[in-house]
Design a protein around this nucleic acid. Sequence first.
DNA 1: TCGTTTCCTGACCGTATGGTCAGACAAGAG
DNA 2: CTCTTGTCTGACCATACGGTCAGGAAACGA
Lengths: 211, 211
Amino acid sequence: MTDPARQPRRLEIRQQNETLILQAAEKVFAEAGFGGATMQLIADLAGLPKANLHYYFATKEDLYRRVVQNIFEIWLNAAQSMDDAPGPVEGIGAYIDAKMDISRRHPNGSKVWASEVMHGAPVIQDYLETTLRDWTTDRAALIQRWIDAGQMRPVNPEHLLYMLWATTQHYADFGHQIETLNGGKPLSDAQWREAKDQVKSMILRGIGALP
Amino acid sequence: MTDPARQPRRLEIRQQNETLILQAAEKVFAEAGFGGATMQLIADLAGLPKANLHYYFATKEDLYRRVVQNIFEIWLNAAQSMDDAPGPVEGIGAYIDAKMDISRRHPNGSKVWASEVMHGAPVIQDYLETTLRDWTTDRAALIQRWIDAGQMRPVNPEHLLYMLWATTQHYADFGHQIETLNGGKPLSDAQWREAKDQVKSMILRGIGALP
DNA sequence: TCGTTTCCTGACCGTATGGTCAGACAAGAG
DNA sequence: CTCTTGTCTGACCATACGGTCAGGAAACGA
């Protein structure tokens, strides 16, 4: 007969349930915050008994940490779109594209991250001080090289990065506000395309990479 | 003798305690979120017994609503810097100045607002649909007039507003991340000035209001 | 001074929450 | 089949939370 799952049954169950829980947790943490989220709510959304959650994740904080790490990794991967680019138009353009896509596809992850940072990064402070700091230093150097090569105006690379993060993540974190101002409807495909174009156009011209 | 308080004693006490509680509440809500904040924590920070808080504010949600309304009004007032400006350089420049100053002086209020919107605006949805929507429509029209007058490039006014909000508020909402990337130290006066200049420069050039 | 209103607070209550645990059950190994 | 290991869960517990309340203290008006 068919053999849809090549893995051993146990591993399959484990992975499936962990994913189920993580997805539910991301949504609940995004909508209620860490303090407002309850294990019962996450359990109900995942369709599992609460005790089962504690079998896979010892504490609420463990579960939360995993959710935060997930979105952070997604962002780090997207950042590679910036490298290997011949100049700011392609590099920063691609980065904006990638981050806007993530804002659309993972709005909850973005919100959880924002919430975590706003509360002083109690559980991912070490990531900020190591991975993120290194990443930022490297990209700032990359931008500086573009500046030195005359491919864009001399701007402060760090503040440019802040602007990139702020603008792209705003479409996820403040999606509800944008939706309300959009007549209560989520942005359509065309509107998302326009948002991307507008952001890219304004920023790339703002740094003198486009005429 | 001296008469430091001209008001009747009762009114004075009331105002003083309400302010004390609101300040403490803003900080605790910003640092812990609505769900993570406790009346006991707010009471301790305000130096009052918990029961006293419930004498002035019936419920936790009432207190929270007042905190959110406060920052919203501060922002609305700042927005007037945009009107009566002859063009985008002065208008948007002044708006950025004002919003950056608020980000520096009221970071907690900004965080509470961000948190509220991220969670779907459960208590200020009506503000979004009335006051904020009207405000946005008016300013979008103002920007459109500048575009029609050839004072800036034709951009989508709404997305420009989003970028202004995102970029300026980022310095408050993600202040902890910025501080960490700044070597663990808060931005100095000079750094805040540079941040303002960079934001203004990039955005005003991005919309073609500056060469 | 006396009565009234406002302010204040320790003690208390019902509820909801994160987490535990004993034991049932299923999967794999031999 | 048997034993071991991993998976599952209802019932339970201690704690912490938002909110209440009776009654005392202070301010005020007459």
